[in-house]
């Protein structure tokens, strides 16, 4: 291993780093009863369909933004995924696997959108330019009563650095980090979404983590 230099005041002496169990990552939305909503919606319950689509749009937005990297493309992909959700909910064979199905649908929509726009000049997005509606707009929000200003500033700074670091990763690596670390999908679920083996997910996730820590270190350390 290449020797890690300590440029800042960070403590680098050996200390215990314990493993965590598979699936321990917190996953926003994991607790929601998607399967129940899918079954009810497939059975013709319009209120359930509306609830399903409302929940799905939040998930689809986060993932499409992670994959597409641009808010306009992300919105198109999200809309496409929602329409497919509406049309094909009745045909989903395994309601328990709705989230992986949704992610796969969003990913396919992003890839299709990219293919359609292949002839267009590439859009260059400033890394300092906040994505409309992203947390950059609320970074350090003094009206947040739950956290003190120092904590808000530190969290906001970390999120900003992480957002920049994530954009340096190749798209598939970014998608894997998003699904595994941020959404809390299992390795198997990520493999299903990405259409690759579980070993491949683990390898790419590890490379992505190493690249991210190095990128974060450039700014932080």
């Amino acid at each position: 291993m290449k020797k890690v230099t300590n440029k800042g005041s960070r403590v680098t002496k050996p200390r215990p780093v314990n493993p965590v169990s598979e699936g321990a990552a917190p996953g926003p939305g994991r607790e929601q009863d998607y399967a129940g909503m899918v079954r009810a919606a497939a059975g013709g319950d319009e209120a359930a369909m509306e609830r399903l689509l409302m929940h799905a749009q939040e998930v689809a937005w986060r993932f499409s933004l992670a994959v597409c990297g641009h808010a306009d493309d992300a919105e198109d992909a999200m809309q496409e995924a929602l329409i497919k959700t509406y049309r094909y909910t009745g045909q989903i064979r395994d309601p328990e696997a709705f989230r992986p199905w949704l992610y796969r649908t969003v990913r396919n929509a992003c890839l299709m959108s990219r293919r359609k726009k292949a002839h267009e000049p590439a859009r260059v997005e400033s890394l300092d330019e906040p994505i409309p509606g992203s947390d950059a707009a609320t970074d350090g929000d003094p009206s947040d009563p739950g956290r003190n200003p120092e904590e808000l500033a530190a969290n906001a700074g970390l999120r900003r650095r992480l957002r920049k670091a994530l954009r340096t990763l190749p798209g598939p690596y970014r998608a894997i980090v998003f699904l595994r670390e941020m959404e809390g999908l299992s390795t198997r679920e990520v493999a299903t979404v990405m259409g690759i083996s579980e070993d491949n997910v683990k390898t790419r996730l590890h490379r992505a983590r190493v690249a991210l820590q190095a990128e974060l270190g450039k700014v932080e350390r």
Binding site: M182, R209, L212, L216
Partner: peptide
């Protein structure tokens, strides 16, 4: 070296897990 790398990877994982607060913009 390995201890530092382990700590940094863990911190990176924790940062990712804490950062998923991207909210759907109102107009979208």
């Amino acid at each position: 070296c390995c201890a530092t790398m382990a700590v940094r990877l863990r911190e990176t994982m924790d940062a990712c897990r804490a950062a998923n607060e991207q909210q759907l913009p109102g107009d979208v």
